[in-house]
Design a protein around this nucleic acid. Structure first.
Lengths: 134, 134
DNA sequence: GGTGGCTACTTACCGATGGAGAGTTGCCAG
DNA sequence: CTGGCAACTCTCCATCGGTAAGTAGCCACC
């Protein structure tokens, strides 16, 4: 009884502040620690292989890299191409949809870089206050 | 014995792609599911009380709301004011630093709203492919 | 022809994190 | 002295993330 077919357009009726809304899950997924970094890397370096990504995202485990890439692929943000060579070569790159996320994501990373010092200062101030008041 | 890690130099040398870099943790914190929503709510509604936030962010547990607000307060993004009344009234609002995050965060939420349909379509396509090959 | 090596994963195990919900504190009305 | 409100705080349990070892397919080397 509803006209659901016009969804391709604007923000329609999604609301991340409502429990159970898919947009909340999506926000969680793209705001994920490793997703942000993987998308950022693929955005800057273009097509990359599995081991390249693992090296550049220092500290990520193979399990999490696989898991993150799979999730991004499933959501249409990353394209995975398997070259049947020996040994196997698998390449990852952003889809057009994935590229549209670069802007928003860059906004986040730039903010964290720009305001890092202020946040660290706030933490020290908070800790100092905590020590005084007990 | 003050073990204060004086992170001396300026903001320019942070790199979230490096393990152990504080900017990676910060990115993780502000990209956190509940942090995004709490900051978004405080940005839109201005000063809010604990129970107001809990109602608006439907689905958040009290534990996570407290935890998220504490972390945001510690990082200097949210100001917490206790009014010694009966019953106690606690109000939360964004700090000036917190306000600077609204833009980047809005970028993310708007992206997820705008591209929700495409992502859902990609998931269905992925599942269909998985059924064929698997 | 068995061994080792390469790439891209999987799997097993375990400590940390998140969700549900009951308990706590302080104070005042009844 | 019991009940109720606001803002937590605590406990239990399921899921998640990290570590590290194992797997599969194929080929070069011995």
């Amino acid at each position: 009884m509803t006209t659901v077919e016009t969804v391709t357009d604007a923000t329609s009726s999604w609301d991340p502040y409502e429990r159970g809304c898919p947009s909340r899950d999506l926000l969680d997924r793209i705001g994920d620690k490793w997703s942000i970094l993987v998308l950022g890397e693929l955005g800057e370096h273009g097509t990359s292989r599995f081991t390249e990504l693992r090296k550049r995202l220092s500290g990520i485990s193979e399990k999490m890299l696989t898991q993150t890439l799979r999730a991004l692929e499933r959501d249409g943000l990353v394209l995975r191409t398997v070259h049947a060579e020996v040994p196997v070569r698998v390449e990852y790159e952003l889809t057009p949809l994935g590229h549209t996320l670069r802007g928003p994501l860059r906004g986040l990373t730039e903010w964290s870089l720009r305001h890092m010092a202020e946040v660290l200062a706030a933490r020290e101030a908070y800790n100092a206050r905590a020590e005084q008041t007990g």
